[in-house]
Write a protein that binds this DNA or RNA. Structure first.
Lengths: 192, 192
DNA sequence: TTCACTATATATAAACC
DNA sequence: TGGTTTATATATAGTGA
C-alpha cells in the first residue's frame, strides 16, 4: 500500500518497524471506529507496540446500562457472566489484563525467540488460583480458630486453660455443620 | 474505498450493513494479523456484529510463558497484575467479558435508542463485589465460629454448655490477634 | 450469508523534515 | 518518535449471482 510492496514478515529495521507500527495502529483504530459506526458493531481493540506502549479502542456501549450500576441488572442477565467467570473465561480475560499491565520490558527481556501460540490457555486457572489463595488464607484462619476453639474446650475439660496444642488435626466430626468449610472453588453465585 | 464514497454513519439498509460488516470485519482482522507480524506487536481484537455474532483475534503470545504456568512467574512480574486487579482494571475486563457472554438479544431488546459512552466505568466494582460476597460468606462463618468459641469458653466458665448467645457483638478485644478478620477488600497479594 | 468482479477510495511505504 | 508529500498497494462499495 505504498511506494513499494512489502512482505508480511517482521520488519527488521527497528526504526522502520516503529514508524510502520504507528501508521498501521492509527489505521486499524480508524477502521475499528468506522465499523462501529457503519455497521452498528461493537469493538474492543487493544494493541501493544514492541516497545510496550498500549493503545486501545472500545466502542461506546449501546446497552440499557446507562446511568445504572451493573448490580441493578436482573439476575437472568448476570448469570452468563457468573457462569463464564466460573468456567474459566475470566482467566482468559485476565490474560488480556496481563498483557495490558505487565511492563513489556520485563516480558520481552525474557522472550528471546520463543514463539508460542495459545500459551494463554495455560492461564485459565489464574483467577481461580487468586481466589483460592484468598480462600486458603481465610480457611487457615478458620482452621486455626477451630483448633483454638477445640483447644479451649479441651482445656476447659482438662482444667488447663493455656496449653494450646495446635499441631494435631481437628477431627471434622467435631466441627458444627454450619462452620464446615465450603469447597475451595470460589462460589460466585452464593449469597446474592 | 469502493465504487463510491460513503459517509461514516450507520448504514440503514440492513442487508448492506451486514455485507459491509462482513467485509470490514475480515479487513480489520487481516490488519490486526499484519501489524502483529510486521511490527512485532500484540493485538487483542473482539468484534460483535449487530446481530450479536462475535469474532476475535488475539495475537500469539511471545512471552517466556511457553510451557509454563503463570504461577511460575516471579513475584515482581505478577505484581502489576495483582495491583490492576485490586485497582479495578479487572472490572473493566469483566465488562468486556460481559459483552462477550451476555446474549445480544437481551441487551439489544433493552437498548432502544439509548446511546451511552463509557457506561462500563459503572461496572468497576463488579469483581470486587463478587469477591466481597465470598469474603462475606467466609467472614460470616468465622464470626459464627467466634461466637461459638466465645460461647463455649463462657459456657465452660459458667458450667452451662448449651446456652448459646449468638445475638450479641463479639468484643474485638477478645479475638486473638491471629484470628482477626482482614478488611473486606480482597487481598490478592498475601500468602504467596 | 458468501463469491466474484471492478472502479474507486483509502491506507501506507518511502522519503524527507 | 510525529508531520509532510506522493506513488502505489490494498480495501472495499456497488453490483450481480
Amino acid at each position: 500500500m505504498g511506494r513499494g510492496k512489502i512482505e508480511i514478515k517482521r520488519i527488521e529495521n527497528s526504526t522502520n518497524r516503529q514508524v510502520t507500527y504507528s501508521k498501521r495502529r492509527n489505521g486499524i483504530m480508524k477502521k475499528a471506529k468506522e465499523i462501529t459506526v457503519l455497521c452498528d458493531a461493537e469493538v474492543s481493540l487493544v494493541v501493544f507496540s514492541s516497545t510496550g506502549k498500549m493503545s486501545e479502542y472500545c466502542s461506546p456501549s449501546t446497552t440499557h446500562l446507562k446511568g445504572e450500576d451493573i448490580t441493578s441488572l436482573h439476575h437472568k442477565e448476570l448469570m452468563p457472566i457468573e457462569e463464564a467467570l466460573q468456567n474459566g473465561l475470566a482467566s482468559y480475560i485476565v490474560y488480556n489484563a496481563y498483557k495490558k499491565v505487565v511492563p513489556k520490558e520485563i516480558v520481552r527481556a525474557n522472550a528471546a525467540n520463543k514463539q508460542t501460540t495459545h500459551a494463554h490457555y495455560r492461564h485459565e486457572n489464574y483467577v481461580e488460583r487468586l481466589l483460592e489463595e484468598e480462600n486458603k488464607r481465610l480457611s487457615y484462619i478458620l482452621h486455626q480458630q477451630q483448633l483454638e476453639m477445640d483447644g479451649n474446650v479441651r482445656e476447659m475439660e482438662n482444667g488447663s486453660a493455656y496449653n494450646h496444642d495446635k499441631g494435631r488435626e481437628y477431627p471434622s466430626s467435631h466441627i458444627p455443620f454450619g462452620f464446615r468449610l465450603q469447597p475451595m472453588q470460589p462460589n460466585l453465585h452464593d449469597d446474592k
